[in-house]
């Protein structure tokens, strides 16, 4: 199948892009970034945008930079940019570990970090990273700029707080503290498929016990989020099997699982238990 007719617009600057969005957004206009989600759904005619605003030529959006304790990722930075660490220590390692679970190599050379965030697939790895770390999304429109916190940004399956005239110009990821540990585990049927369930955990160890735990789950619910019940089961506890088991159990109980042909609710709960525990096991230094 091929897309329904559309007009492509090519801005050279962020200002140009937001002007176009202001004009075409209300007329069924959309941003085209890497096209790795949008183009397939257009090919099935499940999306029929009348206008595409192609931001691939906007040079100022292609940057990854570190500002204090945040990593700023511009709107056209590709997944493949994270194959090698873009930051020191655990932060760089975490991103380069996670990126390898996104689709396949050719898709990673085109698809963008911010495109994943804007697309908001519940099983997107980057959405999980953004939720777990507490990212901030920078949205720009002709009306101005606003910064949206991850927990407010993801609203449901492929739905976000972005308005139709807003461009997501960058995502700001808090950098993991230097002594942080992380663990990631994803379950899918084939290498490169979207996750049926995945977990990302981070924490520090102080005085032999877990401090500042974060447990994020993706692919399991309508949107990725942190699971406070699982974090509570970790906080102040020693790094041991019993602790991990308890956190995994708490996560499995806490979720409101989505159902699809790959997994019913009961199976997803089981997977959440498994991926949470395994992410924790992998986090152990």
């Amino acid at each position: 199948m091929k897309p329904a007719p559309f007009v492509r617009h090519v801005p050279a600057t962020v200002g140009g892009a937001t002007d176009m969005l202001a004009e075409f957004g209300p007329q069924d206009g959309r941003i085209l970034a890497g096209g790795q989600s949008l183009v397939p759904i257009m090919a099935f005619r499940m999306a029929r945008p009348a206008h595409l605003i192609d931001i691939n030529g906007v040079a100022e959006l292609a940057r990854v930079s570190r500002i204090d304790n945040t990593l700023s990722i511009g709107a056209t930075v590709r997944h493949a940019a994270f194959h090698r660490p873009v930051a020191d220590a655990e932060m760089g390692r975490m991103l380069s570990t996670v990126v390898r679970h996104i689709a396949h190599y050719p898709i990673r050379t085109r698809g963008t970090f911010c495109g994943s965030i804007a697309h908001a697939d519940p099983a997107s790895e980057w959405c999980l990273v953004a939720s777990t770390l507490g990212a901030e999304m920078v949205a720009r429109s002709k009306r101005g700029q606003r910064v949206i916190a991850a927990e407010d940004f993801f609203e449901g399956i492929m739905s976000t707080a972005l308005a139709e005239d807003e461009l997501l110009t960058e995502v700001r990821l808090p950098i993991l503290p230097s002594q942080a540990h992380f663990g990631f585990y994803e379950f899918n049927r084939r290498a490169g498929d979207f996750a049926i369930a995945m977990a990302l955990v981070t924490y520090r160890v102080t005085d032999g016990v877990i401090a500042e735990p974060r447990v994020g789950l993706g692919g399991a619910e309508a949107r990725p989020r942190r699971i406070p019940e699982a974090e509570a089961a970790l906080k102040g506890r020693p790094l041991e099997a019993k602790t991990f088991q308890a956190a995994a159990e708490a996560a499995a109980q806490a979720i409101d699982p989505i159902e699809d042909i790959q997994a019913d609710a009961e199976y997803r709960r089981e997977l959440v238990r498994a991926v949470t525990r395994r992410a924790l096991e992998r986090s152990v230094p």
Binding site: R190, A191, D193
Partner: peptide
Amino acid sequence: ILTSTLADYLPPTARE
């Protein structure tokens, strides 16, 4: 038919 794309109908890849 609920499996009308290759996102739902899963042939093995070289990795499997």
